[in-house]
Design a protein around this nucleic acid. Sequence first.
RNA 1: GCGGCCAUAGCUCAAUUGGAUAGAGCAUCUGACUACGGAUCAGAAGGUUAGAGGUUCGAGUCCUCUUGGCCGCACCA
Length: 570
Amino acid sequence: MSATPQAVLTKRLHAALVACGLPPERGEVTAAADTRFGDYQANAAMVLAKEAKTNPRELAARIAGYFEAGDICLKPEIAGPGFLNFRLKPPWVSGQLRALADEARCGVSATKNPLRIIIDFSSPNIAKPMHVGHIRSTILGHALARIARFAGHEVVTDNHLGDWGTQFGKVLHGWKHLLDRDALERNPIAEMTRLYREVNALEQTDPAVHKAAREELVKLQQGDPENRAIWEQLVDLSWAEFAGIYEKLGVDFDERLGESFYHPALAPLVDQLLAAGTAQISEGAACIFFPDIPALTEKPCLIRKSDGGFLYATTDLATIEYRIERWDPQAIWYVAGAPQQLHFQQVFAAARRMGVGTQLEHVAFGSILGEDHKLMKTRSGDNVPLRDLMDEAVSRARAMIEAKNPELPAEEKEHIARVVGLGAVKYAELSQHRMSDYVFSWSKMLSLQGNTAPYLQNAYVRVRSIFRKLGSELGSVQEVVLTEPAELALAKKLLRFGEIVPLVLQDFRPNLLANHLFETANAFHTFYEACPVLKSGGVTEHSRLVLCAATARVLKQGLDLLGVQVPERM
RNA sequence: GCGGCCAUAGCUCAAUUGGAUAGAGCAUCUGACUACGGAUCAGAAGGUUAGAGGUUCGAGUCCUCUUGGCCGCACCA
């Protein structure tokens, strides 16, 4: 396993700090903010000088004196108030690139601290269509799962389906009185949604309907065989629809334990919490209070309604107990929208009150906005069904390919349309900071210019085109000599891949990886213009082919971590 | 009212968690096409980081306040 430049420099900086009698843990090396200053930089002298109340530039000079640059980089330069700047030597970069070419993990070392992590994401509701509201959780959760796994963590993905709730009383009532079998046959989700809406509307004016729907729900929860059988059909029909969407998106789950799975555990859990004094009855409801947490003093976590029903939080707590019992994870990540922050704060606080030590993280994200900058809706004001959105992505990509490359075989065009269209949707989400509200724009995400999936896919395609022209793959790797600025800039970008991937998990930010891939593609295009590959001859040609092969592998691997595929042609 | 999240180029967004002269892409302007895919590249222009204080060698980033926006806030999930 070859170490990244950052890791190599950090190790040497630590040695230099120890030699100076300084604590090594502050000796962080980061990529230089500006390549004019070098390739990497360290702020250690300024940080340590502050603590020791000495002159930072003098301290930097002492550290630099002990730094063993060897054949890796030039002697560190001291700049500004006390920055240490490192410039990598071209022969060393060449050697590292050669090593990267033989390295299956593209320079990403496995974490030294592997965790067992449960990732809870997607979680659509049964008997309702999956819509844009679910897409961010699905795509972000899936990408984080892939990245965490690649980084060496043990990951369990769980789709916590909304398959148990008050909506079923309404749907059951509708099923028994208003069901249109033909419509159900044609489009099950649409028919289920219609039933829900009609009953909901009737309830507003007719208290008898409200009462009837409630009774259906109670019967279901008490295990009435007829209602149970209908409910199972609802689940199966919905899941068939979801599974089709997940299959197209290339998303899968290790588990799909919905809310219903935990239903039997809810009553005992609440009783136990009441008996232990963790929860109290207040205004008829069972609650957990947090007098010691300022933000939650007035916001107790309700776990049983005064009518005896259970809540979202109850299920979540039972789910935590189950997951700990079954997997004993070190962390559980919930990929859910920012509006649910209070809920997770309450649930996490309640879990801690129950003695849960597992790290619990709400991976929050912003909303998807339409081009009018309001929450994305259809013209009639409904949520946009995910299936329609995906179909449109594919058909727009298909039109693009048809215009650019009409001579490709029909089957390949269809494949490319899927890879490009769905890749564009995913990448558009992931290339954005997760907390920002994100404006959905077909023309931007499908553009071949800028930070988009098609641009990156195209960069990959161009590399592959070189090997097609060459008539063979790279073959065995020989000596690599890089001298041109464009070659070295690209090589350094490629070597940084191993530094970026772990960074993504530090704060759940796939956009850092997306940005880095974009920079890599840019560096490749610059290289491509400046440095002819084929027919350059000898060591130069071989070195450039090694660069090309490494570029293709890093782009493919990086996009794969984001859940985006690459075509060979487009 | 209380709380959370935000506010960066005309537009859409970054900024490796406190580092150097705040970066990209669209759009605009100027160049490069007998090209390994121009689906590209090179360059120009564009900023008081909403505003005001504070912390320190150093702030888009941390603290306080103000303005403006989105979202939550006891029996939906």
